[in-house]
């Protein structure tokens, strides 16, 4: 899969970029790696606490509501919709990056716009989910849900849920801001003057990382 390079190429003997990418993009990769460890620490501490508990609330019971349909239980449907929205917005982001490679300003703007819409849709879904859980009595330090075996649950469940999805939601929010700035810069022709659209690529990396983290949050909180 790795990009083809001539055999015996001396990458480290000077005069070449050993990673074959622009400096900012490499630093974005390192930032994302450190951010992965931040999220990893949060999710693993959740895992540790959950493993040290004799029982835990059932996600199929807790996350079973959907807007509009009222009281009808539809376990995990809403959060799957959120996952789908984030995956779809990742696709539009890749398409924007691809269009940037072709210096196609109009297409970049179109797909960036769709990506921002996707991000806002995800944030709206999360706002609804949080509001709904809050109305059921869940918040930091308050847990109205029973464990799966009917015993009293601790507040660990809600504390971790709101902290981790909140931290992720904050990343999505930052991503929407970054993408909006990229859209404005593209619109004003900044990247055309520079001659390349590498900034879009860096924003894209961040956006995909947010999607990547959500994949793990989805598994840890809603499936396991």
């Amino acid at each position: 899969m790795a990009q083809a390079v001539p055999a015996g190429q001396k990458w480290w003997s000077g005069g070449k970029s050993p990673f074959h990418v622009e400096y900012g993009k490499l630093m974005m990769w390192y930032f994302l790696m450190s951010d992965a460890f931040t999220f990893g620490a949060l999710l693993i501490s959740y895992g540790t606490i959950r493993m040290s508990s004799n029982s835990w609330p059932n996600p199929n019971e807790v996350f079973k509501t959907f807007p509009i349909v009222g009281e009808m239980p539809v376990p995990l449907a809403f959060v799957s919709l959120m996952t789908f929205i984030l995956i779809a917005s990742s696709v539009t982001m890749v398409l924007a990056v691809g269009a940037g490679h072709n210096q196609d300003r109009k297409t970049v703007m179109k797909y960036l716009f769709f990506t921002i819409i996707g991000g806002l849709a995800f944030l709206s879904c999360q706002a609804w989910e949080w509001t709904h859980l809050h109305m059921e009595g869940a918040w930091w330090g308050r847990n109205p849900f029973m464990n799966i075996d009917g015993t009293q649950s601790s507040t660990n469940f809600t504390n971790f849920f709101f902290t981790i999805t909140g931290f992720h939601g904050f990343h999505v929010f930052s991503g929407v801001i970054v993408n909006t700035i990229m859209l404005i810069m593209t619109w004003r022709g900044v990247f055309d003057r520079k001659g390349h659209y590498l900034m879009i690529e860096k924003a894209g990396l961040y956006w995909h990382f947010v999607d990547l983290v959500w994949v793990f949050v989805f598994t840890c909180f809603y499936l396991l």
């Binding site: 790795a2 990673f19 074959h20 995909h208 990547l212 598994t219």
Partner: peptide, 27 residues
Amino acid sequence: MTLAKAFFIIAEFMHLGHEIKNLVMTT
């Protein structure tokens, strides 16, 4: 399944699968 999804996001969307080996290994 989660690790499979993570692989596809990193390799294709984040394009790491198409970078050179040095960069892949350093991350």
